[in-house]
Each structure stands twice: as structure tokens, then as C-alpha cells.
């Protein structure tokens, strides 16, 4: 009998009796829980709530009235919505193309050694780092019809155009300014990503090509571009997602370019405060993006 008593485990059930793996798992959950809870409450829940709101005529303080698909039908039969979609698509295509192409060019130039390269690198990053609000007014001044240097150059110095013109104020041309601003703001990001990949390309590939007599252009097409294919593919995806959702970079430079985010913002928060319609627009905007992402990842990136 005494033997049995000795063999019985003495230690009571406490966290100490857990295996190290179990303790790690507990601690792991405990440490991530605050972050997950906050993300759940302030990101996941609002998104679901946003979908819910899209089925209602939303009242800010009182009760919401269920309206079914009325908001959704209202949106897709509204010409202004399709105009906003078109504006967004044009904005995204040109801003992303410009950003990636300029980023590629700058990365190729900056991949060579030269004196003061470190300083130039810092300077290139400034547009990306500086706040949007702190840089939009300078761009507006540059394109100002009366005092701006752009109009001064094109009209008075170069004489390309006869009369002074208001590029930002004219709804037809203001998208050009929005695209130029976006390219200026974001090319440093593209440049950084491309440069980091460029520097990883094996130099012996170029040496071998040179021995075979390949020129600079040939080397670029047959070595550099294939090596960059993946990074450029991912870069385009990221920039499309971000530029598609952009609000500040467009709204603060000109209110004339009504991309989807701005259209939604104006619908929800100006005039009659149509929050239900705004929520519907936000959902539709997200769905459009999602369809693009799935198509792009499957067909273009072939993941």
C-alpha cells in the first residue's frame, strides 16, 4: 500500500504542471489577445457593420429603416457612380504606370556608384515621407494660373500655349495634376522596392552576357527585366490596391477629380448625410477591388 502512495504524483494541477509547449501556447494567446481584440473591434466588426448598414436607410441618432437592396440598385443605376468608377480606373492606371516606370528608371540610375549617392538617396525619399497636407499646396502653387511656374514656363518661356490656363480648376484637366502628384509622391516607394531587387541580381549574369557580346539594351531586356518580373508584378498589385483606395492624395490637391473614395465621402458626409448609400458605395468599391485582385493574382502573377 505504501508503494502506491509514493507513486501517486504529488504536485497539484497548476500552470506549472503544463508542458513548456502548453505554457508557450497560453502565453502566446495572452500576448496577442489585446492586439487581436482591438483589431477585431475596430477593423473586422466595422467592416461587417458597414455591409449591414448598406441595407438600411441610416439615421445618425435614431433607428435605421430596412430598405433591402434599394441602396445597391440606386448606386448601380446612378450615372454619377459610373462616372466615378471611370475616373478611378483612369486615375489608377496612369498613376500606377507612371509610378512604376519612373521608379524603374530611377532605380537603374541609382544602382550605379557615384559620389554623394547617399545624399541623393535621402533626397529621393522626401516626397514619400513628407505629409500629403504639407506638399499639396506647393503643387497647387506650381500649377496656379496666375503665379505658377508651370504656366509661366509653358506660356511665357517656351510659348507652347498661347493663353494662361487653369489646370487644376478645370474639371477636364485636373486629373492630370492628381496623377502627376501621385507619381511624384509614390515613385520613391517603387524605386526602393525595385532597387533592392536590382542589387540582388548576380553580377556574373551580366559579365557572361557581355562576353557573349550583348549590348546594354539587350542585357536590360534579357537579364534585368526577367529578374525584376516578380517584384514589378507585386509592386503593381500593391500600388493598385492603395491608389484605388486613395482619398487624401486626390481630395487635397483637387476636389474636381471624383474618384470612388471621394464620391463615397461626399455622399455620406455632405448634404443630406446619406450614410446608408455611403456604406453601399464602400462595399461596392471593395468588391470591385477584390475582383481585380483575384483576377490579377490568378492570371497575371499566376500564383
Amino acid at each position: 500500500m505504501a508503494d502506491v502512495a509514493v507513486a501517486r504524483p504529488r504536485t497539484p494541477r497548476s500552470p506549472k504542471s503544463l508542458t513548456p509547449q502548453q505554457r508557450d501556447a497560453r502565453l502566446g494567446w495572452a500576448l496577442i489577445l489585446p492586439a487581436i481584440t482591438i483589431i477585431g473591434l475596430l477593423v473586422i466588426y466595422p467592416i461587417i457593420y458597414n455591409v449591414y448598414l448598406s441595407f438600411f436607410d441610416v439615421s445618425l441618432m435614431g433607428a435605421n429603416t430596412f430598405t433591402g437592396l434599394e441602396n445597391h440598385i440606386g448606386v448601380v443605376t446612378d450615372g454619377e457612380f459610373w462616372q466615378a468608377v471611370l475616373t478611378t480606373v483612369i486615375y489608377v492606371i496612369f498613376s500606377v504606370l507612371g509610378t512604376v516606370m519612373l521608379g524603374l528608371g530611377v532605380a537603374i540610375v541609382m544602382n550605379k556608384e557615384f559620389p554623394l549617392r547617399g545624399v541623393v538617396r535621402s533626397i529621393i525619399l522626401l516626397p514619400y515621407v513628407a505629409p500629403v497636407i504639407a506638399t499639396v499646396f506647393a503643387w497647387q502653387f506650381i500649377f496656379d494660373p496666375v503665379r505658377g511656374i508651370f504656366v509661366h514656363l509653358t506660356v511665357e518661356v517656351l510659348g507652347i500655349v498661347q493663353d494662361r490656363f487653369n489646370l487644376i480648376g478645370n474639371p477636364k484637366t485636373s486629373i492630370i495634376v492628381a496623377v502627376v502628384y501621385s507619381i511624384w509622391k509614390n515613385f520613391p516607394f517603387a524605386y526602393l522596392m525595385i532597387l533592392s531587387r536590382l542589387q540582388a541580381i548576380d553580377a556574373s549574369l551580366y559579365e557572361a552576357a557581355e562576353i557573349d557580346g550583348a549590348g546594354a539594351w539587350h542585357r536590360f531586356i534579357h537579364i534585368t527585366l526577367p529578374e525584376l518580373q516578380f517584384i514589378i508584378g507585386s509592386l503593381v498589385l500593391l500600388r493598385v490596391i492603395w491608389n484605388f483606395n486613395k482619398f487624401e492624395e486626390v481630395y487635397l490637391i483637387t476636389e474636381n477629380v471624383k474618384v470612388l473614395s471621394i464620391y463615397t465621402y461626399l455622399t455620406a458626409f455632405t448634404g443630406s448625410l446619406d450614410l446608408g448609400r455611403g456604406a453601399t458605395l464602400a462595399v461596392i468599391q471593395f468588391l470591385i477591388l477584390l475582383i481585380f485582385i483575384i483576377y490579377y493574382v490568378k492570371k497575371v502573377l499566376k500564383w
Partner: peptide, 11 residues
Amino acid sequence: MFGGILLLIPL
């Protein structure tokens, strides 16, 4: 992937 606009109205 979520843009700010998707969170703005519900929040």
C-alpha cells in the same frame, strides 16, 4: 487591403 473609407462610415 481595406481602405480607410470602408471603416469610416461604420466607425
